[in-house]
Design a protein around this nucleic acid. Structure first.
Lengths: 333, 333
DNA sequence: CTGAAAGCGCTAACAT
DNA sequence: ATGTTAGCGCTTTCAG
């Protein structure tokens, strides 16, 4: 496979020690006399020896590799989560195998099984939907899993996220205080755990608490173009304030309004429930629930390192603080 | 490691065949009688046997894993490239190990070495800079490498990209035909191969061919805020048309202009040299050189699969067609 | 502190 | 068509 294939055996021979000793110095085992350690190190450097991680993995049953399951890399929401994960993984010397499941050729449970076959030491799961087969796949294994930026319906798995209910309620309240009474909620997939258990109930409760009627929930609005096309419906329904879960979708609505000569925020207020770089870069900039995506990823990965080392993890259901960033798509009165 | 650790040996015993035969059916080897194959398959399913990819990798010296080296996952340029890579990798059943090198804790050659230690079957390199140590690291190995969305200075490595010189010249010409004479070039890192060998020479040649003087090249303008702050300099230099390599940077300039009440495109035309989703989502939408990022990634990965199988690859320096997307940041007269 | 030896789970000749 | 037998390169008892 490699041009030069220096093995631990070559080093042992050259340094006149056993492979066991070489293994010890490679792994930083302290039970090696300083001068033998130095001698071995010298040979390692001279021969440019590099341990074969696959062989190490087979022998030690640890691959120092974690698997990431993510719907779509080109969605900045996941990219920013991944960055937090990646930085902490680097810190703890773990490699990352990424499996993208947007492609319909790959189901969630297949993705999980594939990672387990690769003997990853842990998995971070970022998809907003966790099908039953995926739950089963996780339960069949001892490999630890952490959910990042999402939750499962029974809180069976460790997770790092924010309090979506509270955040949405606060956002709705902002619109309400700006005088908006015809509030709408725009969702992508309406069947995700977060939507079913948090966003939709929070919305319904808010509407009923404030006697605002049934309101309007729009589902399956997933990208810029869906958002763009939704505007006419919003107009028709007389919506004057809207929470949009995905910020690219929110930008679609915004651009549609701009192109139609509809004033944002005067005639329509928009809040995106997940701010990525895109939300801050458009004009008018979008008021947003800022989830600490990088931190969510980082904390999730940190928790996973503990789980992989069988360390004590006192709290496995973590909620990080969010922030409501008031920008130009709300009047903020 | 796993709760249930069914090995090929267990299957062999239960199916009353040798492990070799089990291995054969697992790997789709045809030299197995149909009824034994069926019997083995039945046991595999009953026991939920899953091959240990690490052991397979050690024995076969192939890991069906490729390494990706990427500067920054949250840059859509790389995310879109990665998506193309990922889709083709899935098609050919390769897993992907991602190594991000933006973090200063990780040098290019260390990233490469790390991937080689993991015994990846191939590497796709996406960073726009390829330091000498990285070149050396690649040369020390037989593991194939493909550059995606970038080039190396001596065309030593297979690569998939576009003709940057031609594209830039065409973009400059568009500005010129719109009547702009004070043209500028805005770069991130000025020392990348693409900038040094393609963009800067193309710019200089264009300026001199059209007697437009020295022109202005601005370097190290890397993000939205850098772009935002650059506007005053552009004003000072009387620039009326600008090519910006990074589209987030371009948006920074655009937003700065909007906020300063400067009309785009009337007073300043902007073309971004790499269009991601962001370029099309801002208003006015950015005129752009549309690089087929997804395709570049896909073609690079496809080429890598051939290289990994020692197949013939007639052309290793591939240039894909680009497109100039005329949008609202140029007048397009 | 160091070495010998037995695997880790699988593939790949080589036999039969 | 199937079985036998060496490894792949390393870690990890177990002795000493």
């Amino acid at each position: 496979m490699r041009k030069q294939d220096i093995t631990i055996y070559d080093v042992a021979r050259e340094a006149k020690v056993s492979m066991a000793t070489v293994s010890r110095v490679v792994n930083g085992n302290t039970n090696v006399r300083k001068d033998t350690r130095d001698r071995v190190m010298k040979v390692i450097n001279r021969l440019h020896y590099q341990p074969n991680a696959v062989a190490q993995g087979l022998a030690s049953k640890r691959t120092t590799t974690v698997g990431l399951i993510v719907p779509d890399l080109t969605n900045l929401y996941f990219a920013e989560l991944s960055k937090g994960i990646d930085d902490i993984a680097l810190l703890y010397k773990y490699n990352i195998i990424i499996t993208s499941i947007e492609n319909r050729l790959m189901r969630e449970d297949q993705a999980i099984q594939g990672l387990l076959n690769k003997q990853v030491d842990g998995v971070i799961y970022m998809s907003d939907t966790l099908p039953e087969e995926a739950v089963e796949a996780f339960k069949r294994t001892d490999t630890p899993v952490v959910l990042a930026g999402t939750k499962d319906s029974h809180s069976e798995f460790p997770s790092v996220a924010i309090d979506y209910k509270k955040a949405d309620t606060e956002a709705l309240n902002l619109l309400y205080n700006d005088g908006r009474k015809n509030l709408a909620l725009v969702l992508g997939n309406p069947d995700t755990v977060v939507n079913v258990q948090n966003r939709i109930p929070a919305y319904k409760k808010f509407m009923s608490d404030h006697n605002l009627g049934e309101g309007h929930i729009y589902s399956n609005v997933k990208d810029h173009s869906d958002g763009y096309n939704l505007l006419s419906q919003l107009d028709q329904d007389g919506v004057d304030g809207v929470i949009v879960t995905n910020d690219v979708t929110a930008v679609g609505i915004l651009n549609s309004a701009i192109d139609a000569g509809k004033k944002v925020p005067e005639e329509l207020e928009i809040i995106t429930a997940s701010a990525t770089q895109i939300a801050s870069v458009v004009r008018p900039a979008l008021t947003a629930i800022r989830q600490p995506l990088y931190d969510i990823g980082a904390v999730a990965m940190r928790m996973l390192t503990k789980l992989m080392n069988n360390e004590e993890v006192p709290e496995t259901q973590i909620e990080l603080p969010y922030e409501i960033l008031k920008k130009q798509s709300t009047t903020n009165e």
